[in-house]
């Protein structure tokens, strides 16, 4: 992973978060984002085709519920755990689609994998991700979000080689 992806990653994510869920977030230093007090969850989406890699998001269950509520036009307490995870998966799927176009243009063809979720993660998982090179930290109200993009190959400039 490279710092070269940090700005486009943060830009695509905040844009999609606003459009999908009408939620605003600010970029912060990932290394300074403390692990949430409870457990957190992670979503992963891989991609193949013109390039290969993976995008990972880690946040709290409360943030996932806010995303679901924003997307569905409900209050957060009206959403289920299933809604929250499904909405977060879709958010990452759309953000990755936007990011890949931002990085590689519209001629490249990518195949995204079905998003997968990990729940009940503890602070060690959070601390490991936030210290990765190129990790992006976001803060939406009090909800922390960590993002990373791992590229194995692809038309993404020197950082992706």
């Amino acid at each position: 992973m490279s710092d070269e992806f940090k700005e486009p990653l943060a830009g695509a994510f905040t844009r999609v978060l606003e459009e999908v869920a009408m939620i605003f977030a600010d970029q912060v230093d990932a290394a300074e984002l403390e692990a949430p007090s409870g457990s957190c969850l992670a979503i992963n989406v891989g991609f193949g085709g013109s390039g290969t890699g993976n995008m990972r998001l880690m946040t709290t269950a409360d943030m996932a519920r806010e995303v679901a509520a924003g997307a569905l036009g409900l209050d957060a307490d009206e959403t289920s755990d299933e809604d929250a995870i499904d909405a977060l998966k879709e958010l990452l799927n759309v953000a990755l689609g936007q990011l890949l176009t931002d990085l590689a243009g519209t001629e490249a063809i990518f195949d995204l994998t079905a998003p997968s979720a990990e729940v009940g993660l503890e602070s060690d998982s959070w601390d490991a991700l936030k210290l990765e090179e190129g990790a992006v930290g976001m803060l939406s109200d009090e909800h922390p979000v960590l993002l990373s993009l791992t590229v194995s190959s692809g038309p993404f400039g020197s950082a992706g080689q």
Partner: peptide, 8 residues
């Protein structure tokens, strides 16, 4: 779709 490829 989130697909951004005009080729596809």
């Amino acid at each position: 779709s989130s697909e951004g490829s005009t080729t596809r």
